[in-house]
Amino acid sequence: MNWFYFSSPSTFYGLAGRLAPWFFILAAVLAAFGLYLGLGVAPTDAQQGAVYRVIFIHVPTAWMSMFLYFIMACYCGLTLVFNTRLSAMMARAIAPTGALFTFVALWTGAFWGRPTWGTYWVWDARLTSELVLLFLYFGYMALANAFEDPRRGDRAAALLALIGVVNLPIIYFSVQWWNTLHQGSSVSFKGTSMHVTMLTGMLVMSFAAWMYAIGATLMRVRSVILERERRAQWARNVEAA
């Protein structure tokens, strides 16, 4: 098997188009089941009441916001080291979806925080570092599009993304390193303190978010490939379907 076959944008274009619908279908099925568990079956939290149900979208979007940044940074590393074209296009395709999840994590956190902490926003370490993540995504996108030559934009933005990786452990460990208003992790590698239905619902929703992110990224990378390869012969023959 030739592992480099799909690293050519023209072949990956077709592959992405065939795979994306399946990821969206998977995301929809998982989300339906996860919402049924989270909003329907799971019991209400004894201390917080029903507002805790924001957890079923807050935690998955927050996890994905960090995970997508990590994947984007990996593609950026490949771009800088090997100068591969598709990796830069993938990084560009991930960024908007990563920013979207970061925004939703911040937004849902605010609406969870108001009734439980008495405030929509506080400049505590977890919230502030997550806001920095949103600005890193914005900065990446702005820098990637700031150059006449897209390959220069790829490299400049990749460097920014790699420097921004230091923010990921800061977000993750912020609740341990500093005294934050944000609660500590309910789920860690050591185990969990959560009710089993709550935990299952949250994990199912996380997989749904993951599948959606892959689907959206694959759809976007197709457009990025077309934008970049519009003068290539193969792109001329793409069906406008």
Binding site: T44, G49, A50, V51, R53, V54, I57, H58, V104, W107, T108, F111, W112, R114, P115
Partner: peptide, 13 residues
């Protein structure tokens, strides 16, 4: 449970 505004503002977003 009285938290409709906060829950649905989150899911709606």
């Amino acid at each position: 449970g009285g938290h409709a505004y906060f829950v649905w503002m989150s899911y709606g977003a």
